[in-house]
Design a protein around this nucleic acid. Structure first.
Lengths: 149, 149
DNA sequence: TGTAATCCCATTGACGCCCATAGGTGCCCA
DNA sequence: TGGGCACCTATGGGCGTCAATGGGATTACA
């Protein structure tokens, strides 16, 4: 099981290529296949990254019939359909598809954000705004509960 | 076990041929036989694609006697009866039978949709409509549960 | 003998591979 | 303990290869 930590901002070159942070590559390398799976987050303006094993778990949930009635299956199915398998080039880069770039609003730079078993790719400014909101929410919650983190 | 991911739209040429996406061909190649099995989806206006091993699993469910009383067996039996085995041509294309095309309403373009252990072939506009509905269902559910995907 | 399916060849455009450079960091050795 | 060096990561660009597509020719079947 991979573990994605920390945040890295890398450049998107003219061809749409980005270096995947070396530590993320190392986490992905545990699997059999040298690459990553990406799909558009259903709720956020971000791209989600995971390894093949993660997709296989989704695959196990999708069954011949159901799907339409069961929201959980519908989610897994739509993720499978939306995802793409991207291999690393010899330098550890991937080519980001145009529609994924559009979904996240990414142009010059891409921010890789570790989220544990998966990671996300954001447009840096959008990430900053999202983080600020998340911060505020956390602060408010801690104040209410008097918790010390 | 193959893993079909992502969505690809390919052209149907004048002769009724379509290129099967290279990554799907790779997933199918794990099996012994260079081709694919197709049948009409019982629920959706789409064609279902799978490998031979998948059909063998259906075959195992169907018993000489029973069938009609058990809905699951009945489904497997009808799928086996409706399915056909199509070989790739040297370029990796298949010739889509006319009745399958009619069932899915496919004319100019065919959308190959990964669903994990199987895939589907749709008429692109119909797929878009279906995806929109599935999206709405997913959104509603995620919003309610506060999940972050 | 006509219709249809399969094979073969050609084209093109995208993608993956190779090379080269730079900057930064950590390591080794004096 | 300080300096120098080597490696690794991130980046840019040119080129070859393969996937997708079109069309013609040959073969198989009715």
């Amino acid at each position: 099981m991979p573990l994605f930590l920390s945040t890295f901002v890398n450049k998107v070159d003219r061809k749409g290529r980005v270096s995947v942070p070396a530590s993320f590559r190392a986490a992905l390398a545990n699997g059999e296949w040298p690459g990553v799976v990406l799909y558009r987050s259903p709720l956020l303006p971000a791209i989600v990254g995971a390894d093949l094993a993660y997709m296989e778990r989704h695959s196990a949930e999708v069954d011949e019939v159901a799907s339409l009635s069961d929201p959980r299956q519908a989610l897994s199915a739509s993720i499978l359909a939306d995802s793409r398998q991207l291999a690393f080039d010899p330098e550890g880069r991937i080519l980001l598809p145009a529609d994924l770039l559009a979904h996240a609003g990414i142009d010059e730079h891409a921010a890789f954000v570790g989220r544990g078993k998966t990671f996300q790719i954001w447009q840096p400014a959008a990430l900053e705004a999202f983080n600020a909101k998340a911060q505020a929410l956390v602060q408010k919650n801690l104040a209410q509960n008097g918790g010390l983190a």
